[in-house]
Amino acid sequence: MAERMGFFTDTSICIGCKACEVACKEWNDVPDDGFVFRATSYDNTGALGADTWRHVAFIEQDGRWLMSSDVCKHCTHAACLDVCPTGALFRTEFDTVVVQSDVCNGCGYCVPACPYGVIDRRERDGRAWKCTLCYDRLRGGLEPACAKACPTDSIRFGPLDELRARAAERVERLHADGVTEARLYGESPDNGVGGTGAFFLLLDEPETYGLPPDPVVTTRDLPAMWRWAGGAALALAAGVAACFLRRT
């Protein structure tokens, strides 16, 4: 397997341009999310969802304007994947979590399972959609569309270990410059999801950005669940296979 790849989104240099949102949509052919003026600073796409795989949050504070591009976290322990009964969700050779739209049957189990509220079903086709970390691009040695477009390199793509080292340096530098509120979010393998493949440098509490402060994988009792699911699937598969055999 290749190295684990991921995103480091450094919000301290984000300029809120939303190039990531558009580049993602252009590459992945994601539909628009409707034309709604939300009167919430410059945010009119609201949140991550089936039709928004990168979302830039704008937080207006006294004298500061924080901007942060959110994305699927590609968790080490990914509940969405754990609960997917069809195998539509799988872990790639880059250790990223991807939905296969040709396999997904739209059951929606993954949606409440995600502790970040990322994965979402699309009204129009019923299937679940989210960031693939541009899996097709990665297979050709290209970086994801959002990271490539990002004008200030706020979104960095690379081997997760390298990104973690770079992020630690960046926090150190910011602290030295007096930006003591700088902190990393999601990089620690000890957190509730075993660390995320997409992590962030924030300038305030996670809640300020609409991020859960202490997310926990919703499938902690996973091994038992998986055994159960395996048994059920076996019964189901036998029946389905029989159908195919009869038709052949």
Partner: peptide, 29 residues
């Protein structure tokens, strides 16, 4: 994917891959 999982492949990794997924490449190629 389900049959491959039943054959013992990791249900959350390679066993889950569809042939479409296997064929994925960046379209710019």
């Amino acid at each position: 994917p389900l049959l491959r999982q039943l054959r013992g492949e990791d249900g959350r990794r390679d066993a889950a891959r569809s042939s479409r997924t296997d064929a994925l490449r960046p379209r710019v190629e």
